[in-house]
Design a binder for these strands. Structure first.
Lengths: 367, 367
DNA sequence: ATGAAAGCGCTAACAA
DNA sequence: TTGTTAGCGCTTTCAT
């Protein structure tokens, strides 16, 4: 790794001006084939790679899009990993464990993995590369601000950035808000039809269950998704002529453990005939609890989830759920960004993606 | 989105020079509190965010690390998604499906999701942001070259970049190769002890199984991981005094379907007493095939996988496997990069991370 | 403690 | 077709 080669080095070597080098790289046809070849050779020989910073500065665009989401995993507290130290060298090549349990990742992370893939795919299709940032509250460093200075556009997951900060960033670059409801702002949005899908799912459950013993397993109060899902549930229940007071509502925090606990409290109070959960992880936890209590699903109680995690397909019985179009969420966000970059003053748009209700055994009394 | 504010705008507004603005942002203590405050106010009022390109150019470092891996999902062929068109607006809010099947993601993708999280975590700890790139063979565009121009260091998954290209990039920035064996190159490497762990796992299986009817389900020939796992298996078998000719070897391509097919061919030829697979997905496919054929696992045949996917914990019976330290792989790669950036001419290092053998029901005759 | 000025490596007019 | 040159927005000596 000698001195990094620049346009000047290449120009010297090819005996042309730096402008010609730049042309060869950006619009090859604008230069005579012979010259082009000389330049290309020089590029190869020097191992020249153009500086993204210099390009970005001159072009006033970076060719990078940013994806920013909250850090759910409390990763700030992750133990330091020292792979370079002495004691590391003496580690055994493997260890052994008899526990069958697998630490399930936070559901939102699984969700984000796929969103990320969709975003990357579409970014690539549009000629961008993707930068990712995870929100961690370190007042002294602002990752999102940092990112905003390096990208042409930013996708943020709802709730991951305080409103005032977001407003400031949006002053500099286009912002797309993912998966949160539009709150009268001017951003472009991508959302799903939580309410409608949950309403329909609830109707399907109501068609089978004993109406007087239906329960809802809600998510944390500050989740917009959770709120919309409750809305859909409530609407369907009301439509069916049931008073909301007659349904039992328990609350969890979207984790499997919280679902299990909530279900245990339900069981203690007399098990419901059907449990509609605000997400898959909690539904799976409830499934555990019901089985432990000797209740059969779906014979004794119906259960539904929401999200469409892989684990929901693998449970016993397989869990009825609603699948999020995660890949498409990522892709749509990038498309919105692309559009806005081209037409900066287009009307703010909200793209609403369809969900897919997956009917499986956990909600089908007949099978 | 008016004109983007620059240092000059801030300087004007605060009635200081641009140098002072820069100082306030980079070393606040070097400037008198009163001045500092004036500048900060101007920054807020203008919504100023420093340009990453300009910074990168002046500082000669970008503060960005790159993570580049191959695109397994044939995503080039993904259908165009048009969320902005007319017909999109008329889409229903949800659809319904009765199929319980869930399209399992490519195993390597799941693997990469976690590596990515580890890399991001460590990058954040070291004050970097992460840029990601996926390899897709488009001769006209070279994403990896592109990335190399924008980052301070690059992590590449083994085999995702041709040797000659990698060599050129490494001339410009430090490169860490992930999960591939070092082939006499000068890069820093992060790997796992595939061979040793597979050997140990095989020993455990041999201790229970009928030695004459053991089979190995290999991965694609061009996979270094697959090759190492075979080496470990072969070593253990040989150590046990068994001739390699006596073991049946079938080959798949790491997918579940290929595992199923391979197992079916085994069954047709007379089922083995134990099947050691080179990865989880194939092992799960084999599990399917054995069950369809009426063979019981582990009573009739033992099965083991490799990777530690969540699906392996959820199968029936749970699959014995070897868990990759995916998070730590990502973290270690970033640490190596950090070290190299600090001490450019340190000795090339290879970090070998321990694997974890997870003993579960599929390989335990006694239970 | 603050300012003036010289780059950093590129792109894109504009000239030739 | 090619070269000259003026920025792009920042950091960092070096003066003051």
């Amino acid at each position: 790794m000698t001195k990094r080669a620049t346009v000047y080095d290449v120009a010297d070597r090819a005996a042309v001006s730096i402008a010609t080098v730049s042309r060869v790289l950006r619009s090859p046809d604008a230069v005579r084939p012979a010259t082009r070849e000389r330049v290309m050779d020089a590029v190869s020989e020097l191992g020249y790679v153009p500086s993204g910073s210099a390009r970005g500065l001159a072009e006033r665009r970076t060719g990078v899009l940013g994806l920013y989401f909250p850090g759910f995993d409390a990763s700030e507290d992750a133990p330091p990993l020292d792979v370079l130290g002495e004691e590391h060298a003496s580690m055994p090549p493997f260890t052994m464990a008899r526990d069958a349990a697998d630490p399930a990742a936070h559901p939102t992370l699984l969700f984000l993995d796929e969103v990320l893939r969709g975003a990357e795919l579409e970014a690539w299709k549009q000629g961008f590369v993707l930068m990712i940032g995870v929100g961690r509250d370190d007042p002294s460093r602002s990752t999102v601000r940092d990112m905003a200075g390096r990208v042409d556009g930013l996708i943020v997951l709802a709730q991951s950035v305080p409103d005032d900060v977001l407003a400031r960033l949006a002053q500099r670059i286009p912002v797309v808000v993912l998966s949160g409801p539009s709150r009268g702002d001017d951003y472009d949005h991508v959302t799903v039809s939580n309410t409608e899908a949950m309403a329909e799912l609830t109707r399907l459950v109501l068609a089978q269950a004993d109406h007087t013993r239906i329960a809802f397993l809600a998510g944390p109060t500050d989740s917009p998704d959770g709120a919309q899902r409750w809305d859909g549930f409530a609407a369907a229940v009301t439509d069916a002529g049931i008073a909301l007071d007659d349904v039992t509502v328990v609350r969890g925090d979207f984790t499997r453990a919280s679902g299990r606990e909530a279900a245990e409290s339900l069981i203690a109070a007399g098990p419901p005939s059907a449990l509609v959960a605000a997400n898959d992880q909690m539904a799976l936890g409830a499934l555990d609890a019901f089985r432990s209590a000797g209740l059969r699903v779906p014979e004794d109680v119906l259960i539904t989830g929401f999200d469409g995690l892989e684990a929901a397909a693998l449970s016993t019985p397989p869990l009825t759920t609603v699948r999020q179009p995660m890949i498409d969420l990522g892709r749509a966000a990038v498309q919105l960004l692309g559009r806005r970059l081209e037409r900066p003053d287009a009307e703010p748009a909200t793209v609403r993606l369809p969900l897919q209700i997956l009917l499986r055994e956990s909600s089908q009394r007949s099978g």
